[in-house]
Amino acid sequence: MKLRQLFTLDGVNLELESESKDDILKELIQLLDLEEKSEAILFKTLKRRENLGSTGIGKGIAIPHCRSLVVNELRLAYGRKPGGVDFNAIDGEPVYNFFLIVAPPLEVSNQYLPVLGKIAQFAKDPDIPGKLTEMEDPQDFLDLLEDRAP
């Protein structure tokens, strides 16, 4: 399955407002439209994953990810923080682009790890950070995936 098929317009926010790593995670989680209790659990699980090592892979991109019982299918969201935020990224630079990936503990289709790999591969394309900065509305993001993502 192509990455484009896994994102929806509702799961894209080009104007994240938060100024801290925790609040960015919470804002991203809200894009998944879960019930409040599930949001709290998911936040804790994502934080635990971040404590193992930041998912900020450098060049202004982070890919917070985890498996959690609070979703019953693979869920993805994208957020952009125009001013950037300190996310303890590998290169120590601010992060502007966030790809959130959450999968249930068991998936019949087993897409989680391949999708995680595809997003990392997409994000590492040298042109992509610039293209992400230029986007003007959420549809531009979906179009970019359609054109450039595996």
Partner: peptide, 9 residues
């Protein structure tokens, strides 16, 4: 729930 998620990881 936290334990379950950690065990899955």
């Amino acid at each position: 729930l936290e334990l379950q998620d950690l065990r899955a990881q």
